[in-house]
């Protein structure tokens, strides 16, 4: 048993990085082709970036994903009641004036800004025109009037510039929910029957303090947000999970260990490093390895200026110079004790 277990252990000198790179890279070439005929079922994959663009996003360690979202799971006492969850959603769901009204009409002679709220959009929320008006009044510090669905904000000035600026400001006002939390909707987990919240942004730090939110289960696809809120370990796990989810969505069978190795390589320094010039490849120890990748002259000149010594331990630089690489069969070397050598007596 013990022997069998050991047979699965990786051998010293096994180039795991290259194997991982090839294992992820080879099916990645098929991903480009498959992307075009991707019919798509009504799941998160429709709203979120998937496939190769998402893989590039993760590997390049983009500061924010192009389609951020987060899952907010709730504590036991609320999670099974739709009403209670909807109540929380109402508190989170970010609605701006621009979501309700298409445009504003400014009256420079009277110094007013009018916004006609779309009744159809208004109906989908629990807001009323009066409520929106009072919120605008409070936030802008102006008097407001409502006439049906038309809100008129009376500005204190007749200055053209200020009214124009005020109009832009008005449109960007958050009249409901948490600013920066994004749109929020209630979803039901079909397996457990519990309700959870899906938001269209990754600012989980704003959602965490809300009562009823299960802090141990909150999740977002924004690796950097997780890094900020929960730390590197969580970011590493999130990165690996996102990679795994991505591969599964594309029906690509890659062993988890390759993805974990990639996640580890990107996070082991304590931060999140991308794979490329400004990250992993750009921080290689060897001058030649860096010069062989990108910006050749820059690396050579800097190496000269600082008197760098290339220890010639990596793969690239040894191939470059024509030496045997220190991996695989090149891991081992033979050492002979000179004293022992002297003990050998030649045959007579």
């Amino acid at each position: 048993m013990a022997e069998e277990k050991n047979a699965f252990k990786i051998t010293p000198g096994e180039p795991v990085g290259v194997i991982a790179a090839q294992s992820i890279g080879e099916p990645g070439t098929q991903m480009i082709l498959r992307l075009f005929h991707f019919a798509g079922v009504a799941t998160e994959s429709v709203i979120a970036t998937a496939g190769l663009p998402r893989l590039v996003e993760l590997v390049d360690a983009k500061k924010k994903p192009s389609t951020p979202f987060s899952y907010v799971y709730l504590e036991d006492k609320v999670k099974n009641s739709f009403e209670k969850v909807a109540e929380i959603v109402k508190r989170i769901d970010e609605i701006k004036v621009r979501d309700l009204a298409k445009r504003t009409v400014e009256n420079f002679s009277k110094g007013t800004i009018k916004a006609r709220l779309d009744p159809q959009v208004l109906d989908t929320t629990e807001l009323t025109a009066k409520g929106v008006a009072s919120k605008i009044g409070k936030l802008l510090g102006v008097e407001t009037e409502t006439e049906g669905n038309v809100i008129t904000a009376k500005m204190h000035t007749k200055n053209l510039k200020e009214i124009r600026a005020g109009s832009v400001k008005l449109m960007n006002l958050t009249v409901n929910g948490i600013e920066g939390a994004g749109k929020a909707v209630v979803r039901q987990d079909l397996k457990t029957g519990e309700f959870y919240i899906l938001t269209a942004d990754s600012n989980i730090d704003l959602i965490l303090p809300i009562e009823g939110v299960d802090r141990s289960r909150i999740y977002t696809n924004d690796i950097f947000k997780i890094y900020q809120v929960f730390g590197v370990e969580a970011a590493r796990n999130a990165l690996a999970m996102e990679l795994k989810k991505l591969m599964e969505e594309q029906r690509i069978d890659v062993n988890d260990r390759h993805l974990l190795l990639l996640a580890d390589a990107m996070t082991f320094s304590g931060g999140i490093k991308n794979v490329g010039r400004h990250g992993l490849s750009g921080e290689k120890l060897s001058v030649f390895a860096r010069a062989a990748y990108e910006e050749t002259v820059k690396h050579l000149v800097n190496a000269a200026a600082f008197g760098e010594v290339d220890p010639m331990k990596g793969v690239t630089e040894n191939i470059l110079a024509g030496k045997q690489i220190l991996l695989g069969t090149g891991t081992v070397s033979l050492a002979i004790n000179k004293d022992d050598l002297a003990k050998i007596k030649p045959k007579k």
Binding site: V18, I19, G322, K323, Q324, I325, G330
Partner: peptide, 24 residues
């Protein structure tokens, strides 16, 4: 192709391809 040989850890074969059979 080089990466494949690196992946196998075939260091001497790699050296033969890239050095001895090329521009040693």
């Amino acid at each position: 192709e080089r990466d494949v040989l690196v992946g196998y850890g075939a260091s001497l074969l790699l050296k033969e391809r890239l050095l001895e059979q090329s521009d040693m």
